[in-house]
């Protein structure tokens, strides 16, 4: 079996490493990108954090909607952290990380949602605790 006649690294001639570029997908020795990403990450995170604290402590939005809004802000901030600080990008070097992250999120979702679901159903199907205790007196 002979080697391929073209160099695979040069096939995508126009989309070389500098032109096709995702945020955080920096080559190894480039500090400027890291600093830019850190600044952007900090900026967005501060905005989202302040928004969360302000929302929680004021009457700006409809009361029962506050937990949902906080959750949305939290997920957004986690996304900001993942992209700008942890460099989860769609670059070819990162595919494995994205897959692993997706699997981790699935497991976390299963555990949290599953636990809450199961325990709330269990609580709904069981006798209240004080009655249980009365039965044992």
């Amino acid at each position: 079996m002979s080697g391929l006649e073209y160099d695979p690294k040069n096939v995508t001639g126009a989309l070389d490493r500098r032109e096709d570029h995702a945020p955080g997908d920096e080559p190894v020795e480039d500090a400027g990108h890291v600093i830019l990403n850190s600044n952007l990450g900090l900026g967005f995170s501060v905005i989202l954090t302040v928004a969360a604290f302000v929302l929680a402590n004021s009457q700006l939005i409809y009361g029962p909607a506050i937990p949902v809004a906080l959750l949305v802000l939290a997920i957004a901030q986690m996304g900001v952290h993942l992209v700008f600080f942890l460099h989860i990008t769609t670059g070819p070097d990162n595919t494995n990380n994205v897959l692993a992250l997706a699997y981790g999120i699935m497991v976390v979702g299963l555990i949290v949602v599953g636990s809450i679901w199961i325990m709330s159903h269990m609580g709904a199907n069981m006798m209240p605790m004080n009655q249980l205790i009365e039965m044992q007196r």
Binding site: A52, F53, A56, N57, G63, I66, P67, L70, L71, L73, A74, Q77, M78, H81, L82, F85, L86
Partner: peptide
């Protein structure tokens, strides 16, 4: 760790104070 703290301060503290 900071990502986990985002989850904690949102779900434990902020939702706890308002929920």
């Amino acid at each position: 760790l900071d990502i986990v703290w985002i989850g904690i301060f949102t779900i434990v503290y902020l939702m706890g104070a308002t929920g």
